[in-house]
Amino acid sequence: MDILLAIAIMALGAVVLGAALGYASIKFKVEGDPLVEKIEAILPQTQCGQCSYPGCKPYAEAIAKGEADINLCPPGGMEGVQRLADLLGREVKPLEAEEKPKQVAIIDEQTCIGCTLCIQACPVDAIVGAAKQMHTIIAPLCTGCELCLPPCPVECILMAPVSETIDNWKWKYPVVEIKPAALRDAA
Protein backbone atom coordinates (compact mmCIF):
# COMPACT_ATOMS: atom_id res chain seq x y z
CA MET A 1 0.00 0.00 0.00
CA ASP A 2 2.80 2.35 1.00
CA ILE A 3 4.57 1.63 -2.24
CA LEU A 4 1.49 2.45 -4.27
CA LEU A 5 1.04 5.72 -2.43
CA ALA A 6 4.66 6.65 -3.00
CA ILE A 7 4.36 5.87 -6.71
CA ALA A 8 1.17 7.86 -6.92
CA ILE A 9 2.82 10.88 -5.26
CA MET A 10 5.81 10.67 -7.55
CA ALA A 11 3.55 10.28 -10.58
CA LEU A 12 1.49 13.28 -9.52
CA GLY A 13 4.66 15.29 -9.06
CA ALA A 14 5.88 14.27 -12.50
CA VAL A 15 2.60 15.27 -14.09
CA VAL A 16 2.46 18.66 -12.35
CA LEU A 17 6.11 19.50 -13.09
CA GLY A 18 5.80 18.27 -16.67
CA ALA A 19 2.76 20.47 -17.20
CA ALA A 20 4.57 23.45 -15.71
CA LEU A 21 7.62 22.89 -17.92
CA GLY A 22 5.48 22.38 -20.99
CA TYR A 23 3.58 25.56 -20.29
CA ALA A 24 6.81 27.50 -19.71
CA SER A 25 8.38 26.23 -22.92
CA ILE A 26 5.43 27.61 -24.88
CA LYS A 27 4.91 30.79 -22.90
CA PHE A 28 8.58 31.82 -22.61
CA LYS A 29 9.78 30.55 -25.97
CA VAL A 30 12.90 32.40 -27.13
CA GLU A 31 12.75 33.42 -30.76
CA GLY A 32 15.93 32.76 -32.68
CA ASP A 33 19.14 31.43 -31.20
CA PRO A 34 20.63 33.73 -28.56
CA LEU A 35 24.00 32.07 -29.02
CA VAL A 36 24.09 33.10 -32.69
CA GLU A 37 23.53 36.70 -31.64
CA LYS A 38 26.34 36.53 -29.10
CA ILE A 39 28.72 35.07 -31.65
CA GLU A 40 27.68 37.64 -34.22
CA ALA A 41 28.41 40.44 -31.77
CA ILE A 42 32.03 39.27 -31.62
CA LEU A 43 32.43 38.97 -35.39
CA PRO A 44 33.69 42.17 -37.04
CA GLN A 45 30.77 42.51 -39.50
CA THR A 46 33.00 43.05 -42.51
CA GLN A 47 30.78 40.63 -44.45
CA CYS A 48 33.89 39.73 -46.43
CA GLY A 49 33.21 36.02 -46.85
CA GLN A 50 36.82 35.04 -46.10
CA CYS A 51 35.43 32.37 -43.78
CA SER A 52 33.74 30.85 -46.88
CA TYR A 53 30.31 31.69 -45.49
CA PRO A 54 28.28 34.40 -47.26
CA GLY A 55 28.45 36.91 -44.40
CA CYS A 56 29.00 37.15 -40.68
CA LYS A 57 25.59 35.85 -39.69
CA PRO A 58 25.79 32.60 -41.66
CA TYR A 59 29.25 32.04 -40.15
CA ALA A 60 27.87 32.70 -36.68
CA GLU A 61 25.09 30.19 -37.33
CA ALA A 62 27.60 27.62 -38.54
CA ILE A 63 29.74 28.11 -35.42
CA ALA A 64 26.69 27.78 -33.19
CA LYS A 65 25.75 24.51 -34.90
CA GLY A 66 29.30 23.27 -34.51
CA GLU A 67 29.83 23.04 -38.26
CA ALA A 68 32.53 25.69 -38.49
CA ASP A 69 35.72 26.29 -36.59
CA ILE A 70 36.27 29.52 -34.67
CA ASN A 71 39.53 30.46 -36.38
CA LEU A 72 38.25 31.26 -39.87
CA CYS A 73 37.79 35.02 -39.51
CA PRO A 74 40.97 36.95 -40.45
CA PRO A 75 39.50 40.45 -39.89
CA GLY A 76 38.56 39.49 -36.34
CA GLY A 77 42.16 38.50 -35.68
CA MET A 78 43.52 36.44 -32.82
CA GLU A 79 41.60 38.59 -30.39
CA GLY A 80 38.34 37.54 -32.03
CA VAL A 81 39.36 33.89 -31.84
CA GLN A 82 40.18 34.35 -28.16
CA ARG A 83 36.81 35.92 -27.43
CA LEU A 84 34.94 33.22 -29.35
CA ALA A 85 36.88 30.56 -27.46
CA ASP A 86 35.95 32.24 -24.16
CA LEU A 87 32.30 32.42 -25.16
CA LEU A 88 32.00 28.87 -26.43
CA GLY A 89 34.43 27.14 -24.11
CA ARG A 90 36.44 25.85 -27.03
CA GLU A 91 40.15 25.56 -27.51
CA VAL A 92 41.99 28.64 -28.88
CA LYS A 93 43.44 27.86 -32.30
CA PRO A 94 45.78 29.90 -34.46
CA LEU A 95 44.12 31.77 -37.32
CA GLU A 96 43.71 29.90 -40.58
CA ALA A 97 44.84 32.90 -42.61
CA GLU A 98 47.28 35.70 -42.08
CA GLU A 99 46.20 38.60 -39.88
CA LYS A 100 46.29 41.91 -41.73
CA PRO A 101 46.23 45.44 -40.36
CA LYS A 102 42.93 47.22 -40.86
CA GLN A 103 42.65 48.53 -44.39
CA VAL A 104 40.38 50.75 -46.40
CA ALA A 105 39.76 50.69 -50.15
CA ILE A 106 40.70 53.68 -52.30
CA ILE A 107 39.38 54.25 -55.84
CA ASP A 108 41.74 55.90 -58.29
CA GLU A 109 39.22 58.36 -59.60
CA GLN A 110 41.22 59.11 -62.75
CA THR A 111 41.06 55.49 -63.86
CA CYS A 112 37.50 54.70 -62.79
CA ILE A 113 35.17 54.23 -65.76
CA GLY A 114 31.94 54.28 -63.78
CA CYS A 115 30.84 50.69 -64.36
CA THR A 116 29.05 50.34 -60.96
CA LEU A 117 30.34 46.77 -60.53
CA CYS A 118 32.12 47.62 -57.28
CA ILE A 119 28.98 49.30 -55.94
CA GLN A 120 27.08 46.06 -56.50
CA ALA A 121 29.87 44.07 -54.86
CA CYS A 122 30.22 46.25 -51.74
CA PRO A 123 28.34 44.46 -48.94
CA VAL A 124 28.09 47.53 -46.71
CA ASP A 125 27.09 50.28 -49.18
CA ALA A 126 30.35 52.15 -48.72
CA ILE A 127 30.77 53.15 -52.39
CA VAL A 128 28.89 55.98 -54.03
CA GLY A 129 28.65 56.65 -57.76
CA ALA A 130 26.39 56.11 -60.75
CA ALA A 131 26.70 54.61 -64.22
CA LYS A 132 29.42 56.38 -66.22
CA GLN A 133 30.08 58.67 -63.26
CA MET A 134 33.15 58.59 -61.07
CA HIS A 135 32.83 56.36 -57.99
CA THR A 136 34.34 56.96 -54.59
CA ILE A 137 34.67 55.15 -51.27
CA ILE A 138 33.16 56.56 -48.10
CA ALA A 139 36.23 55.75 -46.05
CA PRO A 140 34.63 55.70 -42.57
CA LEU A 141 32.09 53.13 -43.78
CA CYS A 142 34.58 50.85 -45.55
CA THR A 143 35.31 47.63 -43.67
CA GLY A 144 38.30 46.72 -45.83
CA CYS A 145 36.74 43.42 -47.01
CA GLU A 146 38.38 43.60 -50.48
CA LEU A 147 35.22 42.33 -52.19
CA CYS A 148 35.28 45.30 -54.57
CA LEU A 149 38.71 44.39 -55.96
CA PRO A 150 37.89 41.38 -58.22
CA PRO A 151 34.91 42.87 -60.11
CA CYS A 152 36.73 46.08 -61.11
CA PRO A 153 37.50 45.77 -64.87
CA VAL A 154 40.19 48.47 -64.84
CA GLU A 155 41.83 47.58 -61.51
CA CYS A 156 41.47 51.09 -60.17
CA ILE A 157 40.81 50.05 -56.55
CA LEU A 158 43.65 49.58 -54.14
CA MET A 159 43.78 48.82 -50.42
CA ALA A 160 45.60 51.17 -48.05
CA PRO A 161 46.19 50.52 -44.36
CA VAL A 162 44.30 52.88 -42.04
CA SER A 163 46.83 55.45 -40.91
CA GLU A 164 47.18 56.51 -37.30
CA THR A 165 45.94 60.02 -36.56
CA ILE A 166 45.71 62.02 -33.37
CA ASP A 167 42.01 61.13 -33.19
CA ASN A 168 42.47 57.36 -33.33
CA TRP A 169 45.86 57.20 -31.61
CA LYS A 170 45.97 54.96 -28.56
CA TRP A 171 48.13 55.13 -25.45
CA LYS A 172 50.53 52.23 -25.50
CA TYR A 173 50.73 49.53 -22.90
CA PRO A 174 53.33 50.65 -20.36
CA VAL A 175 56.40 48.61 -21.07
CA VAL A 176 59.22 48.34 -18.62
CA GLU A 177 62.36 49.31 -20.44
CA ILE A 178 65.04 46.70 -20.08
CA LYS A 179 68.50 48.21 -20.16
CA PRO A 180 71.74 46.34 -20.00
CA ALA A 181 73.29 46.67 -16.57
CA ALA A 182 76.38 48.86 -16.43
CA LEU A 183 79.41 46.69 -16.50
CA ARG A 184 81.50 47.03 -13.40
CA ASP A 185 85.16 47.68 -14.00
CA ALA A 186 87.23 44.68 -13.19
CA ALA A 187 88.76 45.45 -9.84
Binding site: L43, Q45, T46, Q47, G55, C56, V124, D125, A126, L141
Partner: peptide, 12 residues
Protein backbone atom coordinates in the same frame (compact mmCIF):
# COMPACT_ATOMS: atom_id res chain seq x y z
CA UNK B 1 31.48 50.77 -36.92
CA UNK B 2 30.62 47.05 -36.88
CA UNK B 3 27.01 47.76 -35.89
CA UNK B 4 26.72 50.30 -38.69
CA UNK B 5 28.22 47.87 -41.18
CA UNK B 6 25.81 45.17 -40.07
CA UNK B 7 22.82 47.48 -40.44
CA UNK B 8 23.89 48.56 -43.91
CA UNK B 9 24.57 44.94 -44.93
CA UNK B 10 21.17 43.84 -43.71
CA UNK B 11 19.50 46.74 -45.47
CA UNK B 12 21.33 45.93 -48.67
Amino acid sequence: AADGAKDRFEFK
